[in-house]
Design a protein around this nucleic acid. Structure first.
Lengths: 196, 196
DNA sequence: TAATTATATTAACACTGTTAATTATATTGT
DNA sequence: ACAATATAATTAACAGTGTTAATATAATTA
């Protein structure tokens, strides 16, 4: 009954933890059912007693990685003044996290989902992540009459799509070639978006 | 000698043609070495006499798909006046093409490349594609003093990253849910970018 | 026509995710 | 405490994947 639920959650956690480690290390390409199970200390078939398939398992990691990313963002924007400047800093730190852990970028944005059943909340988590990170600052801008609600909505969306776009080209197509170029390019584009 | 080169190119074309058909139909998920070879009328191992691996083969299709996409774009912007408005129309048609052929979007932007050796020109083709589609219109805007060269560069980049970003969320994360919403959202964002 | 070269094919390897059958463990009733 | 039952973990198997080596077939040359 309750014991069973506790034990089941513990087992799930073993597999999730193993998956997290692989994703942070070798990335999505390093993931395999046998790989995960071995790291968790169980046979590969045991995994299917706790997850319906391997995709359900890896999407379980999203929340944890978002927490970790948010931590990194917070530590990087310590002394940045509220408002547009901080939105820029948050977005830069957000992208920096995914560059550090390319596998997590792949999980968040590239990994395909065939049947969305049950994964909708996780997808929503991913889609709204940057919005949530910047939420208080957008509200600040609106309260200071720097932006109308409608303008803020457009700016918000612009960041939401530009950031993964930039990451997609840099991580997946090596364009631009160096991190410094990427950083300069990103700052240029963010300045453009937030200047209006 | 020369005959040999002709025959070799013919063989390559058989495999490329088969790959194109699969990509347009079932998409990237339908691709497999045995699948391609069967469609081409050869055994799977024969493929390796003409391509070093399957990734080299599928990247050979990029140029053809770009030609096809450009054709579709041209036919959709017939009566659109030169300049910013046409840039918007081109970008919308560009996105429409990838929505029609999701597998080609995956090939262009999502498909991973481990060793870039030899694929650099293809990657460059992909990265600069939208820029090239809009090139004459950007030049028109500059010649009309609507934009400086530097401003045009920023706008160009903005489109370059926003379009795949929008497609990534829509095709890979079903966000927004309907095509009409996607279209409205895209137009909103494109208007924002090109209004400044 | 015979020997040689080039090309295509099959067999095999090491993987992948997933399911069914089997074994081991834990829980229950007596 | 022991036997019967339910639960959970394991191995075996299946149908795939990309790729390479060995083999068979076709074409070319002497």
């Amino acid at each position: 009954m309750d014991n069973k639920a506790i034990q089941e959650q513990r087992m799930r956690e073993y597999f999730i933890q193993a998956t997290r480690e692989i994703l942070k290390g070798e990335g999505l390409r390093g993931i395999s059912v046998r790989n995960i199970a071995s790291k968790a200390g169980y046979s590969y078939a045991t995994l299917y007693n706790y997850f319906k398939d391997v995709k359900e398992l890896i999407f379980e990691c999203v929340q944890d990685f978002q927490d970790e990313c948010e931590e990194m963002v917070q530590s990087e924007i310590q002394n940045t003044p509220q408002g547009l400047e901080r939105i820029k800093a948050i977005t830069m730190a957000y992208m920096k996290y995914f560059i550090q852990y390319q596998g997590i970028f792949e999980l968040f944005f590239l990994e395909g989902v065939v049947d969305m059943s049950g994964k909708k909340p996780t997808i929503e988590l991913i889609v709204t992540f940057l919005d949530r990170l910047c939420e208080s600052d957008w509200e600040y801008c609106i309260s200071q009459n720097q932006l109308t609600k409608e303008q803020a909505e457009i700016h918000k969306a612009e960041l939401r799509y530009v950031a993964p776009g930039l990451l997609l080209f840099y991580l997946n197509r090596k364009h631009p070639e160096s991190y410094n170029e990427f950083k300069a390019l990103s700052e240029r584009q963010l300045n453009f978006i937030l200047k209006n």
